[in-house]
């Protein structure tokens, strides 16, 4: 990945610089007009969060059952990124909801699930930071539970009223919006890959430094 880092970085930077123009250029949605534009940030942020959660869960399982320390670093990096992008989704969502629904927050299935996953992964980071020795395993268990909790929370809250736009709106987007939407998604995914790369590298080097430090001691 190191070889590809600069080119990918360049493409991502260009895409983010161009994003405002692409989004401004996309046609207005017929009922929500300007408010709908936040969709180009909101949905890609959740795409990244869910990708990060699944990476964190699967790599945590690999760490726990195979003892692969590198998998733990990947899981940790993914958990951190999941929290950051989850916050982005949780901030942009109510901004839109205030205009579209008239309220900041609704106890809707998707909103509740997002909030809980955010809580689980903040728990992950807290236990990682303050759990003391052995907290890597604890947080790995947390990530696995977090990943497997997704369907349960979804089903149990879905039985309440759901007013969030369905995920099925994505394939029905108008031609202008379709392009702008997938442009945003790709830009966010590239940003995710870059952040993951940097974060995993940082953890690897931190571990290497620790090993050197331990080797130096008499």
């Amino acid at each position: 990945m190191t070889r590809f880092f600069l080119p990918v970085f360049g493409v991502t930077a260009l895409m983010f610089a161009g994003a405002p123009f692409v989004i401004a250029d996309a046609p207005y949605e017929s009922t929500m007009l300007l408010v709908q534009k936040i969709f180009y940030f909101h949905v890609p942020a959740w795409f990244v969060m869910f990708t990060a959660i699944f990476i964190s869960g699967i790599w945590s399982a690999r760490y726990l059952f195979k003892g692969d320390r590198n998998a733990d670093r990947v899981a940790f990096a993914a958990a951190e990124i999941a929290v950051v992008f989850g916050l982005m989704g949780l901030v942009t969502g109510p901004l839109w909801g205030r205009k579209a629904w008239g309220v900041w927050w609704q106890w809707d299935a998707r909103l509740t699930m997002a909030l809980l996953l955010e809580a689980i992964f903040i728990g992950y980071l807290l236990v990682r930071k303050y759990g003391g020795p052995g907290s890597e395993k604890l947080s790995a268990a947390m990530a696995i539970f977090g990943m497997l909790n997704v369907p349960f929370v979804y089903i149990s809250v879905n039985i309440w009223r759901t007013i969030h736009p369905k995920t099925s709106v994505v394939p029905t987007l108008g031609p202008g919006m379709f392009g702008a939407f997938w442009f945003s998604v790709i830009a966010f995914m590239l940003l995710f890959a870059l952040l993951m790369h940097l974060r995993v590298r940082l953890e690897q080097q931190r571990a290497a430094l620790d090993d050197l430090y331990l080797a130096e001691e008499p």
Partner: peptide, 28 residues
Amino acid sequence: FAAMLVRARTRDIMLPILLYPVTIPVMI
């Protein structure tokens, strides 16, 4: 979670922090 936290210094506060979000489906 309680078994895992036995060795952790901050177990008193960590247990509810970890347990409540995970058991929310049961509570609902």
